[in-house]
Design a protein around this nucleic acid. Sequence first.
DNA 1: ATCGGACCTGTAGTAGCTACAGATTCAAGG
DNA 2: CCTTGAATCTGTAGCTACTACAGGTCCGAT
Lengths: 137, 137
Amino acid sequence: MEKVTKGHVFAIGEMSRRTGVNIETVRYYEKIGLMPKPNRSEGGNRLYNDVQLQRLYFIKRCREIGFSQSEIRALLSMVDHDNITCAEVYSVTTAHIADVRQKIKDLRKLEKVLSQMANECSRGDVPECPIIEALFE
Amino acid sequence: MEKVTKGHVFAIGEMSRRTGVNIETVRYYEKIGLMPKPNRSEGGNRLYNDVQLQRLYFIKRCREIGFSQSEIRALLSMVDHDNITCAEVYSVTTAHIADVRQKIKDLRKLEKVLSQMANECSRGDVPECPIIEALFE
DNA sequence: ATCGGACCTGTAGTAGCTACAGATTCAAGG
DNA sequence: CCTTGAATCTGTAGCTACTACAGGTCCGAT
């Protein structure tokens, strides 16, 4: 007979490899409560299964998309309590989109200011720099 | 006779008020070495002058424009050592502009992904949410 | 049995501040 | 001169989202 746990239980290294999430980050997510406490081997090593892997992957995707810890916490708690409604998820998402759009706006403004400053600059070997002057006002 | 120090020496509260930089942040800048250690009153309160005020203002403007601590440190050290050349300042600035542009690009991509996800969402009262599904892949 | 790689805990560091607690100082009014 | 309350002091902890150790233990293959 084959191992009962074949393909179903694995250590933190495999979690990390398969999700692309750094080992210390996996432990960190456990510490802050995004990931549940896993079972342990007799020696004390963490043992994970596919469900936990999927959850970690979900967290990773959320981070890539720029959701904050608390946003992820909100999404996960809906998932966990099985009381997701599309409308709720939608509202978390659109709030996040608004954030992103605001950040883009701010950065564009910034880029304009910086470019203007840079354009006025002679790039020369001289100590009078309009950029520095602009920063001192 | 008027006070000798008229308009020239003031406490941290005035620094804060006049620059718009939070008191604790002023102390923080001192701690991390962006601001020099100021003189103290007999009782130990910090005493500032206009030169320091100008420096604080410079730091504030740099932060507003998104320069990082180490970028500010670089700019300030040029100012301090009086070996600014326009070319050096220009290179710090253009590097920063490149950063900003990259951030804008990344955020635009993000916005696209998020908007697509949100568009596919029914906003309904149902527990099947394409956003969550997308995040689980 | 041994050996090296994987894993453990716990702490400190990163940026860029903010927010206290608990003590002291300052400046203005009586 | 003394009191009072605002301002300031130091020092520490918290925030987000991790990363990077140190110094030890465990696991699995030979």
